[in-house]
């Protein structure tokens, strides 16, 4: 590995930066999809969304 550590912390390699960026984008998409899913499901369920017998 070619990471270096100086007094300011870890310096990421370009490959590590690219990998981190792609993971961050994927997490952002997943969270956005979850928000959209809950929004659409709330519309689908209507007022019944609050009725939740177990």
């Amino acid at each position: 590995m070619s990471e270096q550590r100086d007094d300011e912390g870890i310096v990421l390699t370009e490959a590590q930066k690219r990998a981190r960026r792609s993971r961050s984008i994927a997490i952002a998409f997943a969270l956005a999809a979850l928000v959209v899913l809950f929004y659409v499901m709330t519309l689908v369920k209507g007022p019944g969304v609050l009725i939740r017998p177990i």
């Binding site: 590995m1 990471e3 390699t13 990998a19 792609s22 993971r23 994927a26």
Partner: peptide, 20 residues
């Protein structure tokens, strides 16, 4: 743990979205 392990620092991940 990689070469940073001796300093107690976790190795930054190279995992891609494809790996996950």
């Amino acid at each position: 743990r990689g070469p940073l392990a001796s300093s107690g620092v976790a190795e930054p991940s190279l995992a891609t979205v494809g790996d996950y």
